[in-house]
Amino acid sequence: MRSSIASTTLQRPRYRTQDSFFRGRGLLTLLLGVALIWSLTSVNWTGSIVHPGGLSAIGEFFKAAFTPELSGSFLGLTLGSAWTTVAYAVAGICLAVLLGFPLGVLASGVLAKSAGRRVAQVAGFRIVLGFLRAIHELVWAWLFVVALGLSPMAAILALAIPYGGILGRIYADILNDVPQEPLRALRSSGASEWKVLLYGRLPMALPDMLSYSFYRFECAIRAAAIMGFVGIGGLGMQIQLSLGDLFYNEVWTLLYALIGLVLLVDVWSTWLRRSLTQ
């Protein structure tokens, strides 16, 4: 009796693993492994992956990291460009918040009067938000440069539109995800959905909304820098110019400025979030 129990418990797992290996993930892993090995035969092993001279260029580029350009005039230029980039990012993210907040509230559907209207409202505004953020800021920048010329407005609008879409979407989700019990209590003391939004949803959602907005501000600084590549000015434009001239030392000075900016925003947002959640 005892031995038969032992033997069945011993055997059963072995059958099960064999069974599931060929039916489930095991089989897929095997197939992918074979595909990987097979794909290696199509690589041209006789030529080189990096073009001739490429390796030494990479070497030079990283060597320059230790000797950034530190002359007074270039530092001045870096500072000026960094200021332009920050200005674009701040203006862009402010407009994005102004755009994203009302759209987010509408797309969350929390103010809808009936279930039917809520579905229509949520679907409608989510499509709007989806459209805004489906197109990358660099594409918007290119479009606005064509339409408005090389003006700061082009950079700011190019940032505000997709970022407004992203923020709106996240705001809507955060507003929907707050704990329901306090909202129920507010409703039972006679509050309308508008008042529930003011006294319940917004206070509870604000720390998360703020923290995500700051994260987006960080992204906006990077994006504003990149936008320089289309000629609007700021760190990105200087990076492109220095890269074109192969002045890697200057590129690194500009990159360090960019890294410094992002770190600064990170420190600021951490401090602000802490003071808000306490």
Binding site: P179, E181, P182, R184, A185, L186, Y199, G200, P203, M204, L206, P207
Partner: peptide
Amino acid sequence: HQQLDLVPHL
């Protein structure tokens, strides 16, 4: 209610 029905952030 038992708990959780105040808005903690206010």
